[in-house]
């Protein structure tokens, strides 16, 4: 019996190790951000804040354009979240149910395209955006983000639609629904969980993206959070405002952490269910 108990304790310890490993860099930012400014620059660093203070958080919003960066990111994230769903849902339905010609090809080719590192697209897209005069316009990010997310959305929704019993649709058709009506009134409500999962992943992607945002938003007032924060620096290397930066890191990562923790079941089920087929 003790052998089993030891094994269980060992297992618990390993699980704790995994959780600790996954969270410590984030937690360290939290701890740093709660320290008083002079304590942040203590040598050697203190582990826990000796005099916890929210001063860094008060100051982060005085980091001149930080709020603006957050708003820009939100704007792009919302735009990007809606579009792939709007384009992806009918297309996925066409692939899954209508067996549209070329559907499978689109699915596969799209996944290959979205897999490529963004550096491949950056110059040609930059040229296109420049030609359209869309530099420093949210659409300069929303459109590419939509395209980069569409394949994954398409793939997730297609495999979900395939699992839905087709009798439902047939019954609805007999009741006089048009095909669009079926999609709108029968399929989409059923697909809400899958749509939500896709939306969360897309929102996280767009909140996180760096390279395109760095290149397509050249004006400071249009920078998104990751780029804006990467640009923050002090007058010299020794004046980097780490107190405010750590608070800013927490402010920009906390929403993602809460989202993942709150919707964990949906995200993990959405990504692992149905099997990822190579």
């Amino acid at each position: 019996m003790t052998g089993r108990r030891v094994r269980r304790a060992l297992f618990a310890a390993v699980v704790a190790l995994i959780v600790g490993h996954s969270l410590w860099p984030f937690l360290w930012q939290v701890l740093t951000s709660l320290k008083a400014p002079d304590e942040i620059f203590a040598i050697p660093p203190t582990l826990l804040p000796e005099r916890p203070s929210l001063a860094s958080y008060a100051k982060v919003f005085t980091l001149r354009p930080f709020v603006r960066y957050v708003l820009n990111s939100l704007l792009v994230a919302v735009g990007t979240t809606l579009l792939p769903l709007g384009l992806g849902a009918p297309a996925a339905y066409a692939v899954a149910r209508l067996r549209a010609r070329g559907g499978e090809l689109l699915l596969r080719a799209g996944l290959v395209g979205a897999l490529l590192p963004p550096i491949v697209f950056v110059l040609p897209l930059y040229e296109g955006i420049r030609a359209l005069g869309l530099l420093n316009h949210p659409l300069a990010l929303i459109v590419p983000y939509t395209a980069l997310n569409l394949p994954l959305t398409l793939w997730m929704l297609t495999s979900f639609f395939r699992q839905l019993p087709s009798e439902l649709e047939e019954a609805a058709r007999i009741d006089g629904f048009s095909r669009v009506g079926v999609l709108r009134h029968i399929i989409l409500p059923l697909a809400a969980p899958a749509l939500a999962t896709a939306a969360i992943l897309v929102a996280i992607f767009s909140w996180n993206e760096f390279l395109l945002a760095l290149t397509f938003m050249t004006a400071d007032q249009w920078r998104t959070v990751p780029v804006g924060m990467a640009m923050l620096s002090g007058v010299t290397e020794f004046e980097v405002p780490w107190d405010q930066i750590s608070a800013a890191v927490v402010v920009t990562t906390l929403p993602v952490v809460l989202l993942v923790l709150g919707l964990q079941r949906r995200i993990i089920a959405g990504l692992t269910a149905g099997g990822i087929k190579g």
């Binding site: 860099p25 909140w207 996180n208 959070v225 990751p226 924060m229 990562t253 993602v256 952490v257 993942v260």
Partner: peptide, 9 residues
């Protein structure tokens, strides 16, 4: 969580 946080941040 580590996979979902913004890499640049």
């Amino acid at each position: 969580i580590p996979w979902t946080l913004p890499p640049a941040v």
